[in-house]
Each structure stands twice: as structure tokens, then as C-alpha cells.
Simulated assay, not measured.
Amino acid sequence: MNLAEKIDKILANEVPFLEVAIYYLDFTVYFANLLFPLFLFLSVIWFTSKLANNTEIIAFLSSGVSYYRFLRPYMIGATIVCIGAFFLGMYLAPIASQGFNDFTYKHLKKGKKAYENTNVYRQLNENQYLYVGYFNVTEKTGTNFTLEEFDGPKMVNKISANRIQFNEADSTYTLFKYKERRVGEFGDELISEAKRDTIFDFDLDDLTPVKYIAETLNLNELNDFIAREKEKGSSYISRYEVVRYKRWSLPVSAYILTIIAVAVSSVKRRGGMGVNLAIGIAIGMVFIFFDKIFGTLAEQSDFSPFIATWAPNMVFAVLAIYLLRNAKR
């Protein structure tokens, strides 16, 4: 279905077949990582409903086996899936995310922004702060550039320019309408030039942070990246931390959804498997709704990313306990 929707753009951009094949491999891994708890949830409902419709569960429990013993194979299976999903999310999915997003913005979303290139504010280190009003990724040029240096609370140097241009040939920067203010003990020194070529310690990535950068980093890289971004005073810390905490919460959600799936589908219903699947799909959609709402809330406000990513698990854990107690009866 995805190929049918994208085939016109792929053909129009004359994308090589190998790139398309790699893209759909990345596409599969990327969405499998995002949706595996839902896939596991629905598969458990389908399998358990088949057992319930054949009255095999009633026979199993009537033989004197406890409901928790009946639940044990499901939890063992969920553990195996969660271990695989953990390594998938921490190490393999970031590689797939890089390829998926690169292909998307290169061939399918031409003209759309993959970069946070408007009002970029960065703390480069303890003393230096950078601001760019707008940075054009294609032309590697920015407007309203400012670089401020402090010694404690006191500003000691400020560089500003109407426009900044990155030169790939020698990794230098050209500043247009360059102005520099050096704050001295007995007076300030003002320097003004129409154009100046210079070298800065910061990287081009500091001027153009990528929206999906956190998704493309493995566990260790992501932890180091977030630590560096906190030092720089990045305004996207909440977004990055939501990505980090989700990598831990998603495997745990598989356990919770497995318990809910077994509790819902182990009861033989008049409507059969269709009723169980309908209930399961409804619960799954509510779970995804909660996950998206809390994730967006954390990214767009001061709401705690930790609470945002774990709140759906906590809410559904309570639901799982309630359903499990009713199912035992």
C-alpha cells in the first residue's frame, strides 16, 4: 500500500531500484519497532480466542491448573519478544530510522524541512552562546547571526553579522556586515567590516539541528548526545528525552498488553473471535492515543518526558490488573 502511494514520486525522481529496496527494508524495521506491542497484542488475542472458542481453556482450567500457570507461557513468549525488541529499538532501529528519514526527505518530501533551521539558539560551551535567525541548509547560509562570549555573568565579546556563509572547500565561514564588540576594562573596542572570513569552533550541525537526529542514535550515542545538548542549552531536550524513554517503555508495554490480551480473549463470548478482536483493537487504539497525546505534550511543553512516556504503561497496568482479576473468576 505504501509503495502504491509513493510510486509516482519514486518514478518521477528516478530513484534507483537498490535505494528503493533498502528504503523498504528500513521502512519495515522502523515501523516494526514502533508497532510491535500492538502486533503482539492482536496476535495474542487471535490465538487465545481460538483456544477459548474451542473450549480448550475451560478444559485446561477445569483440570485444576491455576490461571497464573495458564498465563506463564504467554509471559515467557512476551519476554523473548521484549528482549528482541529491546535490542531492535536500541541498536537496529536507529540505523533503519536514519535510512528511512534520509530517503523520505531526499526523494518523497522535497522542499519540506528536515532541519530545525529557524531561530536556532545554542549554548556551545560554558561561555559561548550562538543564535541564527534562519539557516538555509541547501545554500549553507544563514541570517541574523550572533555569537556571544561570557566570563561569568559579564559579556566579554560579541560577534554579529547580517549573513553567514559556510565554505565547504576549506571549512571556513564568511560573515557579511561583520561587527565585533570586545568589552575591555576601560572601554569597548568596536570592529566593523563589510566582509570577513574566519574559523569557528562550532560545527555546521550546530546551525542546523536535525529534527529526527535522536531517532538515528543507538543507546550509548543517544545518552552522550543528550548530555552534550544539555550543556549547549538546546531547546529540544524534551523531544530527545521522549525518544530515549520510549526505548525503555515500549518493551515493558508488551508485557502489559499481553496480560490485557489474555484476560480479554480467554473468555468464550457469543460473538466469537470477532468480538474479542474488536475489543482488542479498541484498547490498542486507546493505548496509541494516550501515547501520542502524552508524547506531544512533553515535546511542546514543560511536562516531564519521563512521566509522558510511562503514563500510558501505568494507566494500562492498572487496567491489566483489573481485567486479570475478573478473568480468573
Rank of each mutant, 00 (worst) to 15 (best):
V120N: 13
Y121C: 08
K110W: 06
V120G: 00
E116G: 00
A114V: 03
F135W: 14
N136H: 05
N127C: 00
V120T: 12
V132Y: 08
T141K: 14
E116T: 05
Q123V: 10
A114M: 07
V132M: 09
N117T: 01
A114Q: 12
N119H: 14
R122E: 12
V137W: 11
N125L: 03
Q123L: 11
K109E: 00
N119S: 12
G111Y: 12
V132G: 02
F145P: 02
T141I: 08
T138A: 15
E139Y: 03
L147W: 00
Y129V: 05
V137A: 05
Q128Y: 12
L124R: 01
F145Y: 09
N119Y: 14
N117M: 06
Y131S: 09
G133P: 04
V137F: 09
T143C: 00
R122H: 14
Q128L: 06
G142S: 01
E139W: 04
K140V: 10
L147Y: 06
G111P: 00
N117D: 13
K113V: 10
Q128P: 06
E139I: 07
G133C: 07
E116S: 12
V120K: 07
R122Y: 15
T141C: 05
V137L: 02
T141A: 08
T146C: 07
R122Q: 11
Y115S: 02
E139V: 13
F145R: 03
V120I: 10
N117K: 07
N117Q: 10
V132Q: 04
E116D: 15
L124W: 05
E116M: 14
K109Q: 09
L147N: 08
K113S: 15
G142V: 08
T118M: 11
K113I: 12
N136R: 11
L124Y: 06
V120Q: 03
V137S: 08
N136V: 08
Q128F: 13
T146H: 04
F135A: 02
T138E: 15
T143Q: 01
A114F: 01
G111V: 10
T118E: 15
E116P: 08
N127V: 11
K110D: 03
E116A: 14
N136C: 04
N117P: 04
V137C: 10
K113R: 15
N127W: 07
Q128E: 08
Q128R: 08
L124T: 08
Y134S: 11
T143E: 00
K109F: 00
E126F: 03
Y115N: 12
G111F: 02
Y115M: 11
G111E: 13
T138F: 03
G111T: 01
N136W: 01
T118Q: 15
Q123W: 09
N144P: 05
E126Q: 14
F145V: 07
T146N: 04
A114D: 00
E139H: 11
R122W: 13
Q128D: 02
N127A: 09
G111S: 04
E126R: 15
N119L: 10
L147A: 01
Q123K: 14
F135D: 11
V120C: 11
